[in-house]
Write a protein that binds this DNA or RNA. Sequence first.
DNA 1: GAAATTGCTCTTGTATACAAAGATCGTTGA
DNA 2: TCAACGATCTTTGTATACAAGAGCAATTTC
Lengths: 222, 222
Amino acid sequence: MRRAESLREVLENDIVTGTYPAGTRLDEVMLATRFNVSRTPIREALIELSGAGLVEIRPRRGAFVREIGITRLIEMFEVMADLEAMCGRLAARRIRVEELAGLEQAHEACIHAKADGDPDAYFHANQAFHEAIYKASHNSFLEEQALLLQNRLKVYRRLQLRVPNRISGSLSEHGQIVEAIKAGDSQRAAEALRQHVLIQGERFNDFVASVAGHVKSGSSRS
Amino acid sequence: MRRAESLREVLENDIVTGTYPAGTRLDEVMLATRFNVSRTPIREALIELSGAGLVEIRPRRGAFVREIGITRLIEMFEVMADLEAMCGRLAARRIRVEELAGLEQAHEACIHAKADGDPDAYFHANQAFHEAIYKASHNSFLEEQALLLQNRLKVYRRLQLRVPNRISGSLSEHGQIVEAIKAGDSQRAAEALRQHVLIQGERFNDFVASVAGHVKSGSSRS
DNA sequence: GAAATTGCTCTTGTATACAAAGATCGTTGA
DNA sequence: TCAACGATCTTTGTATACAAGAGCAATTTC
């Protein structure tokens, strides 16, 4: 693998997990010394990240972790909801028996994670659940797009799990989604998924509004 | 503007218009001499293009114009149909009077282009028509995604206009779309747009199948 | 004292140099 | 004659060097 590509992965992770919060200037020499490489692979990694929308390159000014306004975030959730709805619609028609088994397993894993009271485990189990649906759409391009956008929204979805009772709600929605897909009801699967994702965007909106006065933007220290 | 960025635009255009057909190896030194620059900005442009999905970079092997198989193409049209449907659904609810006027104007332009028997003009008018709908969705992220995918499919959509009577069909579908949006019927607008785009994918499939035995893949000489 | 301009410095963007990994072609052996 | 191995040669990936634009500060002028 190219050095630039592995660097992209590390940087992507650092951005998504909040190590480099939105607005941070990503100095090339700083990163170069951090990773013990020259500026060249760093630049290439930053360009890749800008293509993925995680970083904004302002010519002659440098690279910055992209600031995503609340409006744009809601727009992204709106699109995510539609992509997931599409996955659900196709999955209801195209899912195979072994994939359905996998989906139900993922659902079970979510239930257990909630029972254990482990939000981190729930986050990952939830992700696996959704990815199972992407895959079951049997549209690899759609799957890629969904994964891409999911990744860009990861940090916000994670934040979103802090909303009280959200996990319970999420879980019962998962149940309905599984039922619809199992029944081959594409319309119902699509709508259930759309609402499931849309509600995240809305709740997130509430969440942001409720903490807007308390915490400074960017510094999300727990 | 950075040199790399302008190079990306030129290369993107060359790929989309078929100057560099699918599978072509994009030699860095060849491009560097062509544009009278060093390899550095060329490499950066290629990386950007790989992010956009137009170019595939195989490590230590070079950059190639991405080959899009018929299966993947159909998948992309399937996603495009859904994105456009979403644009239509939102546009039906959110379009403003001046935007509606613009949409109707774009529709008129399509009609005139057909009357003039100018397929090239129709192609551009058609594009403007669709872009008007993207914009009217009032979801700038969705608009960007739709434009991106539209661009990636451009060369195939263009080919698609050669199908007999396609323009007439396309035009009447446009009429129905405008009606639905005008009426604020989001469901009908979405469905009309989905079918309008899906039919392109299907017709394209037919088209490819019908010429598969006659022309060699890649060399699309008229 | 404030504002504007000029010069310096810091950082990005591009060119070039170097290293390493593939590809190609020839040679040798079976 | 064909296949396999090896050397060379091409090409990518990374490092370094150089150029040029942007920001900042200090000084000068009004």
